[in-house]
Simulated assay, not measured.
Amino acid sequence: MVLQVPDEAVRKSTGGDPRPGVEPRLLVLMLAIAVVAGFFGGRLVLIRSDSSTTGGAEVISSSPLEPANSVDDGQYTPYTGVVKAVTPDSAEGKCSESQEGDAPAALIDQSDTSIWRCRGEGIGETAVFEFDEPVTLAALRVVNGNTAWTDRYTAERRITAIRWTFDDGSFFDQGLAPNDRDAQEVRFPETETTSIAMDVLGVTEPGDDSDLSDAVSISSLEFLAPA
């Protein structure tokens, strides 16, 4: 025997016409899943975005950065004319780990085989180049890294930034491309000085794990004056 329930009774028990739909408990569960998925989806986007901005190689400029103490009272206009090489009369400096005192002299001895090289991380290594008489400097050329020894360029550290300071205390920071074996030139306003100090600000990691590779080098350095 089949019991027949009148349509009117159905409408009264449900408060209106029966409609197809989702059970309330199931609807709440679906909404909760959507909220959680949205939260984690947003987190993944943020993490991916952060990774894209911090990953990869940093772009290094070989142009001078705006100096804190400008070499010409804030009017930083690099010299653009013809230049000629001038050689300092002396160079002094000690590597912090080895305490070798003759390393900077290798950069002014006019030899293609001798280099300035300090063992260790390299940041904070300094050298001072002096002229017997005041000279006007307008540019520098740096061969970054160890290009003199066979197969040592990529194995050792390379410099990414140097601060150059003149005898009056003014200075500028030079960015160096870490994978350029050629001379990298930087120009600045004509500046008269009797000395210029070099301070290593940034370096790369070594190319391998050997003790010999934990070092920084400059293979060649030229000081340039207006011709």
Rank of each mutant, 00 (worst) to 15 (best):
residue 1 M to H: 14
residue 4 Q to Y: 14
residue 5 V to Y: 06
residue 8 E to I: 09
residue 8 E to K: 10
residue 8 E to W: 06
residue 9 A to D: 11
residue 11 R to D: 07
residue 12 K to F: 07
residue 13 S to F: 15
residue 14 T to K: 11
residue 14 T to H: 11
residue 14 T to S: 12
residue 15 G to E: 05
residue 15 G to L: 05
residue 19 R to A: 13
residue 20 P to I: 13
residue 20 P to K: 14
residue 24 P to G: 06
residue 25 R to Q: 10
residue 26 L to S: 15
residue 27 L to Q: 13
residue 27 L to N: 08
residue 27 L to E: 14
residue 31 L to H: 06
residue 31 L to S: 10
residue 33 I to G: 10
residue 34 A to N: 08
residue 36 V to R: 14
residue 38 G to E: 03
residue 38 G to Y: 03
residue 40 F to K: 02
residue 41 G to Q: 02
residue 41 G to C: 04
residue 44 L to G: 13
residue 46 L to C: 03
residue 48 R to Y: 09
residue 49 S to W: 09
residue 51 S to F: 07
residue 51 S to D: 06
residue 52 S to V: 03
residue 53 T to S: 13
residue 55 G to P: 00
residue 56 G to T: 04
residue 57 A to G: 13
residue 58 E to D: 09
residue 59 V to W: 07
residue 60 I to W: 09
residue 61 S to V: 05
residue 63 S to Y: 12
residue 65 L to D: 10
residue 65 L to C: 02
residue 66 E to N: 13
residue 68 A to M: 10
residue 69 N to D: 15
residue 70 S to E: 10
residue 74 G to A: 07
residue 74 G to L: 06
residue 78 P to K: 03
residue 80 T to P: 00
residue 80 T to D: 08
residue 81 G to S: 05
residue 82 V to H: 13
residue 83 V to E: 03
residue 84 K to P: 00
residue 88 P to F: 01
residue 88 P to T: 01
residue 89 D to F: 01
residue 93 G to S: 00
residue 95 C to G: 15
residue 95 C to V: 04
residue 95 C to W: 01
residue 96 S to G: 10
residue 97 E to H: 05
residue 98 S to R: 08
residue 101 G to A: 10
residue 103 A to Q: 13
residue 105 A to Q: 11
residue 106 A to V: 00
residue 108 I to D: 01
residue 108 I to N: 00
residue 109 D to I: 04
residue 109 D to G: 06
residue 111 S to G: 04
residue 111 S to I: 02
residue 111 S to E: 12
residue 115 I to H: 06
residue 116 W to G: 00
residue 116 W to C: 01
residue 117 R to W: 06
residue 122 G to N: 07
residue 123 I to A: 14
residue 124 G to N: 05
residue 126 T to F: 00
residue 127 A to E: 00
residue 127 A to R: 01
residue 129 F to R: 00
residue 130 E to C: 06
residue 132 D to W: 06
residue 136 T to S: 12
residue 141 R to L: 09
residue 145 G to R: 03
residue 146 N to S: 15
residue 147 T to V: 09
residue 148 A to C: 11
residue 148 A to P: 03
residue 149 W to C: 09
residue 150 T to R: 10
residue 150 T to G: 04
residue 155 A to L: 08
residue 155 A to I: 02
residue 157 R to K: 12
residue 157 R to P: 03
residue 158 R to A: 04
residue 165 T to K: 03
residue 165 T to G: 04
residue 165 T to R: 04
residue 171 F to M: 11
residue 173 D to Y: 05
residue 174 Q to T: 07
residue 174 Q to E: 12
residue 175 G to V: 06
residue 177 A to W: 05
residue 182 D to Y: 02
residue 182 D to G: 08
residue 183 A to S: 15
residue 184 Q to E: 14
residue 186 V to Q: 06
residue 187 R to D: 07
residue 187 R to E: 07
residue 188 F to R: 08
residue 192 E to F: 02
residue 192 E to T: 15
residue 193 T to M: 07
residue 194 T to F: 01
residue 195 S to P: 02
residue 199 D to F: 10
residue 199 D to K: 09
residue 204 T to W: 01
residue 204 T to L: 05
residue 205 E to M: 12
residue 206 P to F: 05
residue 209 D to E: 15
residue 210 S to K: 11
residue 213 S to N: 12
residue 214 D to Y: 09
residue 217 S to C: 13
residue 218 I to E: 02
residue 218 I to T: 01
residue 219 S to F: 01
residue 220 S to Q: 10
residue 222 E to S: 09
residue 222 E to M: 07
residue 227 A to Q: 09
